[in-house]
C-alpha cells in the first residue's frame, strides 16, 4: 500500500469570512463582483448590514431559488437577487450620489495589485489586445468611506500582488486602507504595509517573503 501525501486544499473563502467579521452593524456596503460578492452570505449574526448594488438597489438579499426569480431585479453582475425588508430602489444618478458622495461605508473589491501607498489597480491589465471596461470601479474607489481589497496574496506565477508601485494602470491612487488575503489582514498607512492579523499557520517571515514591499510588524 502506497502512502499518499494529503495536501489540505486551501480554504479559498477564509479571507472573505475574515473580512465579513470586520463589517460593523448598520454599515451600507457595496461588494464588487467575484469573491467579494460571497461576503454577503457570511454575515450570519445579529448585525444588520445593508448591501448596495450600483444599478439601483439598497437592501439587496440573497439569490432567489429557481422558480422565485424576479426577471426585473438583477445585481451589478446582472444575476437575479432579492430584496430584504427596508430595501429601496433608485436610478443611476442617485446610486452614484451614494457612491461618489461618501455615503457608502465600505466597498470591497478585488485587485490585480495594491501599492504600499494604497494605489489600486483592478480595471485593466493594459494590454492593447484587450477591450477596456471600467464599470463603477473608479467611482467606488474614490467615493466610498473605506476600500478594502479581497484577493490572493500572490499571482498565479508567485509574484506578490502587494507591491511598492503598481505596474498595471491605476483605478485610483491612494484608495485602499486594508487588504484581506490568504496570508492575513494588512493595513496601508504612512506610505507602507503593516500587519493587522496573520492567517493561521502563517509566520511574519513567510508573509514578508511573499510581499513585494516592506511589511511592518504593526
Amino acid at each position: 500500500m502506497t502512502v499518499q501525501t494529503i495536501i489540505q486544499p486551501q480554504d479559498r473563502e477564509a479571507p472573505a469570512r475574515r473580512l465579513a467579521r470586520d463589517i460593523e452593524d448598520g454599515w451600507y456596503v457595496n461588494l464588487g463582483v467575484g469573491m467579494p460578492t460571497k461576503v454577503a452570505d457570511m454575515i450570519n449574526d445579529e448585525r444588520e448590514v445593508v448591501f448596495h448594488s450600483e444599478n439601483g438597489i439598497l437592501g439587496m438579499g440573497p439569490t432567489p431559488p429557481e422558480g422565485e426569480i424576479d426577471p426585473w431585479l438583477v445585481n451589478a453582475g446582472k444575476k437575479p437577487v432579492t430584496l430584504l425588508p427596508g430595501a429601496s430602489l433608485f436610478h443611476h444618478a442617485d446610486s452614484f450620489t451614494m457612491i461618489r458622495g461618501g455615503h457608502i461605508d465600505l466597498c470591497v473589491l478585488g485587485a490585480f495589485e495594491v501599492s504600499q501607498t494604497g494605489d489600486l489597480a483592478n480595471w485593466t491589465t493594459g494590454g492593447d489586445e484587450l477591450m477596456p471596461a471600467v464599470g463603477g470601479a473608479m467611482d467606488l474607489s474614490v467615493g466610498a468611506k473605506r476600500i478594502w481589497v479581497l484577493m490572493q496574496h500572490n499571482a498565479k506565477g508567485g509574484e506578490s500582488k502587494l507591491v511598492e508601485a503598481c505596474s498595471y494602470p491605476l483605478t485610483a491612487p491612494g484608495a485602499v486602507s486594508r487588504i484581506y488575503t490568504d496570508l492575513g489582514v494588512f493595513g496601508v498607512a504612512d506610505g507602507g504595509f503593516y500587519v493587522i492579523d496573520l492567517a493561521e499557520g502563517v509566520s511574519l517571515g513567510e508573509a514578508r517573503a511573499r510581499t513585494g514591499a516592506p511589511l511592518h510588524a504593526e
Binding site: E54, A93, F96, D139, V142, A172
Partner: peptide, 28 residues
C-alpha cells in the same frame, strides 16, 4: 466610468455644462 457617465447625462438634463469629479483623477 459609470458614475461619471450618469453624472454627465444628469448635467446635460439639468443645464450644467461641466463639473469636477475625483473619479479617474490620477488615472489614464
Amino acid at each position: 466610468p459609470q458614475g461619471t457617465l450618469a453624472e454627465r447625462i444628469r448635467c446635460a438634463g439639468a443645464g450644467i455644462p461641466a463639473f469636477y469629479t475625483a473619479t479617474a483623477a490620477g488615472t489614464q
